[in-house]
Amino acid sequence: MTETKTAERAQPEAITAVPVRHPGRWVAIVVLAIVAAMFVHMLVTNDAFQWRFMLDNMFRPPVIEGVRTSLTLTVLSMIIGVALGIVIAMMRLSPNPILSGAAWLYTWFFRAVPRIVLLILFGNLGILYSRYELGLPFDHQIGNLLGIDLDTRFFGLDARTILTGFMAGLLGLALSEAAYMAEIVRAGMKAVDPGQQEAASALGMGRGATLRRIVLPQAMRVIVPPTGNETIAMLKDTSLVAFVPVTNELFFQLQAIGARTFQVFPMLVAACLWYLAMTSVLMVGQFYVERYFSKGFGTKQAKARAQAENVGYGH
């Protein structure tokens, strides 16, 4: 066939075919619509929900105070958990066997003990010692050995001062979170191409700078999504600090109202709504954090370019 013939030929008409029908989808829509209607009907007609009562009570000052406590606990324990988790992950990946062994031991312990047990344990640390003090280790024992009265404690606090419910709860949540975060961070750092570390080394960058400037920022891409999960889980786990006990926490407050007024169910629904709302806000935050750390990866231009040129890049 010559080229002129091809050019002369008319453009073929666009395809108009009968699309495949999907009757299953229609059935599903009908079924779901019926179920949803039944659910709404129940919400509206069942008096046990007590919507008016719920709305009147779910924004009362103690509840708002509870929301604030829960959010503060979430934010603080995640900050400590992530920071400590990074340190432990770095220890775990360090060539020093003592450090990596200690990091392993930490993760082993704090992942093994259930959070609720850990929280009650921390709440009762006052039983071990009534005062916590800083000084040379074993000073009294060494003093006894030498027959002198040796006391090097220069700073001390009453157990009740530092281990108030809030501190104990925060410590329990943060330390346990650090163990999980350490594993997440370690997985993230391992996911970074070893060539990156090599390139940094070849440029004369030390271990610290390489980690901080090259490996961690890239690992963040892998670390952020599961950390979002962890944050949401943490928000929900703050309800466990009631066992420390910390009483100005959201769920405890809602339950207290329910117990006091014998309207248990509406307050449970209120708890669901509060946690839903707070989690939704966290998810919005996660979206922006994820977008920030995907800088340089999978940009629109890069994808278009890869398709156009079929160039293998960056792997």
Binding site: G195, E198, A199, A200, L203, G204, Q218, K295, G296
Partner: peptide
């Protein structure tokens, strides 16, 4: 190592940095 330049088969550019940042990284850090 800082006095020896190395170029790799797989480039190993830092993907989270622009060209300019890639080049500035070692002089600024090291």
């Amino acid at each position: 190592r800082a006095e020896i330049g190395m170029v790799f088969q797989r480039f190993n550019l830092f993907p989270h940095m622009t060209s300019l940042e890639n080049i500035c990284e070692a002089p600024c850090q090291v």
